[in-house]
Amino acid sequence: MKGYLGIDIGSISTKGVVIDSENNILAKEYLWTEGDPTGAVKRLLKALESQLKGVDVNVVAVGTTGSARKLIGVMTGAVVVKNEITAHAIGTTTIHPDVNTIFEIGGQDSKIIIIENGFVVDYAMNTLCAAGTGSFLSSQAHRLGVSVEDFGEIALTSKKPTNIAARCTVFAESDLVHKAQIGHKKEDIIAGLCKAVVTNYLNNIGKGKKINAPIVFQGGVSKNVGVKKAFEEQVGHEVIVDENGHLMGAFGVAVLAKRSGKERAFSFNVADIEFRTRGFECGKCANHCEIICVYKEDELIDSWGNKCDNGAVRTAR
């Protein structure tokens, strides 16, 4: 049986799925990137490989997405290297063909994708602000002494969510401290934070966008039922959270790899090969481009980062 591997390497988490030609998920894994994308992918591949033990599947194409897509694409010999917006849209429309809006809140970024008749017609991605993202929620959970996994459940127990300034993480944090000190209950503050994340999201990247149902909510934060509930209250529609919502980018790029029709031999042994990156500053002009060279064992296989030909690094092949 032919299999297709999709890898989504985000700043916080790394996701991978293997699908068959009918888009059934054969193996899936979700783990922390921990600032080491190549290491994370190696762990990911090991985990996927062990899940596939005894399954007669041969991975014929790899797709990568996420902020480290290029690096991991080189490492795994990917046939498709795609941005996470397209990957998420393709993944979601494959599972929910009638979807009109995708909310996605990840560790470091958040996006909104508007879809009409299966096509992306509009999207936005946050640029400068971390207020509506997962890392903000997890740092605040830590401050309140609860684990981020329990955050949503606790929020649901609140009857009267506290109002928390939502515009900016700095203000939100000082407001939160203030509300705690004057005696607001912890569950109310937690519910208030969930609301604040949603308000921030809708006011920033959701601004001016046509938000129509069906709405699918994805990304790590979609696992937080408190945020899901806050979304439903504020947009007035049901918000669908898929069991595999956090894997949608990886799933989407696996679908794209399948659709590309290209096949390139892949072996899980990649996890045992040493990949090294080396960064240096090109000194050939005042641009000082940061050039990244990727080595497989000791062979230079790719490089990027140069703005002009002066900084081009010739690879061995």
């Binding site: 941005n83 397209t86 096509f119």
Partner: peptide, 18 residues
């Protein structure tokens, strides 16, 4: 620069499909 590239790529995918 990465953020810009990501969004431009998605923009191209979108307008091409449209």
């Amino acid at each position: 620069e990465t953020g810009i590239k990501t969004r431009l790529e998605a923009f191209y995918d979108m307008v091409e499909a449209r």
